[in-house]
Amino acid sequence: MTLHRISAFAPIALLAACGPAQNARVAHTPPPPVRTEAGLDRVLGKDLRALISLFGTPNQDIREEPARKLQYASSVCVLDAYLYPPGPGREPLVTHVDARLPTGEDIDRASCIAALVRRKEAR
């Protein structure tokens, strides 16, 4: 073949190299498991009754449809539990929690949960 004929096929060869391989295997690895702090499972996914059973009556109960925020406060920490219904007509469940010291600085959420449980048990 002459150099002219080879150069005419070069773009086709390059495009063919960019295509998918016929026998390529795609590894399907599952996503890494969602990691939650130990102790959060005591609150996340729970309903109002479970929170009251765990912590007692909330210090604040704020409703802003469709959400509801329950706040539990102690001398150790303040915990905000946010409840949202998982679907129309379903009971709201805790989907997120925030925790802070009474001074407003962040604190480990699981530690706050444990402190609030101990407070209720001591009563």
Rank of each mutant, 00 (worst) to 15 (best):
P32N: 05
A114Q: 08
T36M: 15
Q71G: 00
E37F: 08
E121M: 11
D80H: 01
P32K: 01
A99V: 05
A17Y: 13
T2S: 03
L3G: 07
R109N: 11
P20K: 07
L40W: 07
L44P: 01
E121C: 08
T103K: 07
V76W: 05
D108F: 03
H28D: 14
A114E: 12
R119T: 12
R68C: 07
I52P: 05
Q71C: 06
V117N: 04
A122T: 09
H28T: 11
R35A: 15
D61I: 00
D47V: 08
D106H: 08
K69C: 13
S74C: 07
I62V: 07
R123D: 14
K46C: 11
A38R: 15
E105M: 05
E121D: 13
K120F: 06
F55S: 00
A13M: 14
A122P: 12
Y82I: 10
A38H: 13
V97Y: 08
P92L: 06
P33A: 08
T36N: 12
I52G: 04
P31A: 01
A110P: 12
L70D: 10
V97S: 02
P31E: 07
V97G: 06
A50M: 07
A122G: 09
G56V: 00
L93I: 10
G39F: 11
E64A: 12
G45H: 04
V94S: 02
N59S: 11
